[in-house]
Design a protein around this nucleic acid. Structure first.
Length: 212
DNA sequence: GGCCAGGACACCA
DNA sequence: TGGTGTCATGGC
């Protein structure tokens, strides 16, 4: 059985991303950088409670106030600055239109997002896949750890290389990429931690390198 | 009290 | 261009 099918059988459909609108997905993508999603939810709930989870309202919020609201997500000063860079790109350069941000070819959209300070490859790809529904495979720390332990790549494989591995071997389908990445995160959270819990892991029999 | 969590960037050699 | 330090909260 293929890895994706095995994970789907074990965890069930994930129906990602946890966010009500494409804009909320983009905000979440920045806030979740190197951070537990539970903490991000607290920050997003703060923004909702203050009724500022919209491009214009968030754009007009001063740095200090924004930083306080997103404090639970950690790195709040840096993330406030990164959010404001994205909001400036969205509101000042694209009229506050998420549709306009994601208009055009995938490669061009990605390049424009990567030019925004604070948006790196994973954050850009998360936005493109989960907010825009365009087919690009998101690579994160879990994906690298899981596939290096399975023996498909080196532990320190580059983002570009492992993404190429997926895009070459998995059919280009946004719904499939969405589900696959979400399932990998579930596996990472529950089993493939820095200290792996291999006993009940659904990939246990496939993973000869579980101890590395 | 330590480990870990859905990164990105500045700085340095 | 590759390695290292920095940013920070909260759950387990």
């Amino acid at each position: 059985m293929k890895i994706h099918d095995r994970l789907l059988e074990h965890f069930g459909p994930q129906n990602w991303w946890p966010g009500d609108t494409p804009f909320e997905v983009c905000v979440g993508a920045i806030l979740t950088q190197n951070t537990n999603w539970g903490n991000v939810e607290k920050a997003i709930n703060n923004l909702k409670a203050r009724k500022v989870l919209s491009p214009k309202a968030l754009y007009e919020l001063p740095h200090g106030e924004l930083a306080v609201l997103i404090k639970p997500s950690g790195y709040f000063n840096i993330k406030a600055a990164r959010l404001r860079h994205f909001l400036s790109f969205l509101v000042a350069e694209n009229g506050g239109s998420i549709k306009r941000v994601f208009a055009g070819k995938l490669e061009d959209v990605r390049e424009r997002l990567l030019a925004v300070k604070g948006i790196g490859p994973e954050t850009a790809d998360s936005m493109i896949l989960y907010a825009a529904g365009m087919p690009i495979f998101v690579i994160d720390a879990y994906t690298k750890r899981i596939f290096s332990r399975l023996g498909f790549c080196a532990k320190d494989v580059s983002y570009h290389d492992i993404q190429g591995l997926f895009m070459k071997n998995v059919p280009s389908d946004a719904a499939l990429y969405n589900e696959y990445h979400a399932l990998l995160v579930m596996l990472g959270k529950h089993f493939c931690k820095p200290k792996p819990l291999c006993g009940a892991c659904p990939l246990n029999k496939m993973c000869a390198k579980a101890s590395t």
